[in-house]
């Protein structure tokens, strides 16, 4: 039970893991703000959003468990999928596994990723997979709030003090390298698009840039030039930070197999 599991990485499972692992790891990162946010209300806000993301992950992993089990073998549980995979089997965006950084870094990352997720959920409302469309209906409301929360804060930080401006610009310079990976389509995307499961990531670039540009214009920020750097976590090749997150997330399930509250 505490041995690692192997998912069948069909294109559908792969596609859903990119979403579900992204919400899982970002949820974990946001949860790290518990007790550390600049003010009490933000402490509650960030952890509240972490719980939204974990909730979305649970729904996606439940669906993956049904699909990966192929209906014949034992259905994999959401806990097994979350906690019993090897690092190379996670398919999240690289940007979400970066350490939480300062508040400006967290806010800018939330804006970038929540916009990316929101655009997915909008299109997944019309997915050929009815389960997935149902998940999208609930998640879309949450993602819209996450996006607005981040956008509001970005305006305040960019237009706030010299210090908040400096930190915001530093976060932008650091995070922009991870944008190309968010919109790089491949065979998995093509399969998803062909089966009308969900959108190809490349098709989301234009609306994403438009929404981000609108916030940046108001904040007086300029998007850096597109980076030539290619991050690779969605291919299973992670940064050095991923191992530490997984160690923290997995050690209980590994030490006490099947342990529950």
């Amino acid at each position: 039970m505490n041995g690692s599991i192997q998912l069948q990485h069909t294109p559908t499972v792969e596609y859903l893991l990119r979403l579900g692992d992204t919400t899982l790891i970002l949820g974990q990162r946001l949860g790290e703000w518990c007790g550390h946010a600049p003010i009490l209300e933000e402490d509650i806000a960030l952890t509240n959003m972490a719980l939204d993301l974990i909730g979305q992950t649970r729904a996606l992993f439940t669906r993956i468990g049904e699909l990966a089990g192929d209906g014949k073998k034992e259905v994999l549980s959401e806990d097994q999928i979350a906690f019993l995979r090897e690092e190379r089997d996670y398919r999240n965006l690289t940007i979400v596994e970066l350490p939480r950084g300062d508040f400006a870094f967290t806010i800018l990352r939330n804006l970038m990723v929540s916009t990316w997720l929101k655009l997915h959920w909008e299109r997944l409302l019309h997915s050929s997979d009815a389960e997935l469309a149902g998940i999208a209906g609930k998640a879309l409301k949450e993602a819209r709030y996450h996006q607005e929360h981040a956008a509001d804060w970005l305006l305040r930080l960019a237009g706030g003090t010299e210090e908040s401006r400096r930190r915001t610009e530093a976060a932008l310079a650091e995070l922009w390298r991870f944008v190309p990976e968010m919109f790089e389509s491949d065979a998995v995307d093509a399969a998803a698009e062909g089966a009308r499961l969900g959108p190809a990531r490349a098709d989301l670039l234009e609306p994403w840039e438009a929404e981000i540009a609108a916030v940046f214009a108001e904040a007086g920020l300029t998007a850096p030039a597109p980076s030539k750097f290619r991050s690779t976590a969605t291919q299973g090749v992670h940064t050095e930070y991923m191992g530490y997150i997984l160690a923290e997330m997995q050690h209980l399930q590994r030490a006490y197999p099947g342990g529950v509250w």
Binding site: I39, E41, A45, N48, H149, D152, R156
Partner: peptide
């Protein structure tokens, strides 16, 4: 009651603190 920099932030924080 709560502290907030502006009206929009006050509404958003009230949502987090008082309607969860």
């Amino acid at each position: 009651s709560l502290h907030a920099a502006d009206a929009k932030m006050a509404v958003q924080m009230a949502r987090e603190v008082y309607t969860r």
